[in-house]
């Protein structure tokens, strides 16, 4: 998912960076009221969880590539949008500065696409759907699955806008790149939705008390939430309707192989090509229809997954036990 340096124009990076900086500052301020003195340990830990969780590779239906969790919606569901946005931002900062994964100048754009859209936007969708579906475990999982799917499409649409702004002057029609990326993101989005739903289903079955209800203090107001949900839906529709998309290589696994973490990766040596090694040749000429079709099929798959995972969750969840807090007495 990361945008590399050099893909976007400097002025686009600057603008995205300014927006991201504002979002981080605002998140920090809201967080202080939201989590009080637990803000630092909980948010820092969530960033570490997402970072480590991204090391777990998911095989892609027999293809010689694999995907991984992005985590924006998962973090926001567990800790709320402010901590979620900060956690994903920190993951991106550490990946850029310690692993050269992603980019330094495009860090702002990456934070905007993945942390702000992923956690804020994803949370808005999640909270809105839960308002409709109620507070049960099954409703929680369905809402998170749909939010995860929309957050990836939203990030994709945003990247398209950034990419078009950047390559406007070159006199190039970037349709090839963009339609290719719709396909990628449909796949990534389905993966993200499935993983988010499955992880959350597991957590709800074990410690349902750890997942807060969205109406806890500090959450967004109803109007803001609906506005953000509408925006996310519009972005997602834009991503599906217009063959309009792009993406850059993801090198996290590559970095992991170079550094000491390759111990974790013994199972799948083929994963070095990560999410993006699908043959490119034909897809570049594909007209809009099959590309949009990919988005629509993805949407259907995600809705079916939401229903199935909700069913599994409903079966697994035992009545909520309150944490008794006695560790290793």
């Amino acid at each position: 998912m990361h945008i590399r340096d050099g893909i976007l124009a400097p002025e686009v990076c600057l603008a995205a960076g300014a927006i991201s900086l504002g979002a981080i500052t605002y998140s920090l301020r809201r967080l202080r009221f939201d989590l009080e003195d637990r803000a630092v340990p909980l948010t820092g830990m969530m960033a570490a969880i997402v970072f480590a969780g991204q090391m777990v590779n998911f095989p892609l239906f027999g293809l010689p590539v694999s995907g991984h969790l992005l985590g924006g919606v998962l973090a926001a569901v567990m800790l709320g949008p402010w901590a979620g946005c900060l956690a994903i931002s920190m993951v991106l900062i550490v990946q850029a500065v310690l692993f050269s994964d992603g980019g330094l100048m495009s860090l702002g754009a990456n934070i905007l696409n993945m942390a702000v859209v992923g956690a804020w936007g994803g949370y808005a969708v999640y909270a809105t759907i839960r308002r409709i579906l109620g507070n049960g475990a099954a409703a929680t999982v369905s809402a998170a699955v749909i939010a995860a799917w929309l957050s990836v499409l939203g990030a994709a649409a945003l990247f398209c806008a950034e990419f078009l702004c950047s390559s406007r002057s070159a006199g190039v029609d970037p349709r090839g790149v963009l339609s290719l990326m719709v396909l990628y993101h449909s796949l990534i989005g389905v993966g993200e939705a499935l993983i988010t739903g499955a992880v959350l289903s597991f957590v709800l079955a074990r410690r349902g008390d750890l997942v807060p209800t969205p109406n806890a203090p500090g959450s967004v107001g109803t109007i803001g939430r609906f506005a953000a949900t509408g925006l996310m839906a519009a972005l997602a529709v834009a991503a599906i309707v217009a063959p309009f998309k792009s993406e850059s290589p993801d090198g996290l696994d590559a970095a992991a192989q170079d550094l000491k973490f390759d111990k974790l990766e013994v199972e799948r040596p083929a994963l070095v090509l990560d999410d993006y090694a699908i043959p490119v040749a034909e897809s570049a000429w594909w007209p809009a229809l099959p590309v949009s079709l990919a988005g629509i099929v993805g949407t259907l798959v995600v809705f079916i997954a939401a229903v199935v995972l909700a069913g599994i969750t409903r079966r697994n969840v035992v009545p909520i036990r309150v944490a008794d807090g006695s560790h290793g007495n």
């Binding site: 309150v322 008794d324 807090g325």
Partner: peptide
Amino acid sequence: RYPNGRLA
């Protein structure tokens, strides 16, 4: 007593 009722 923990919130779950267990007397510790």
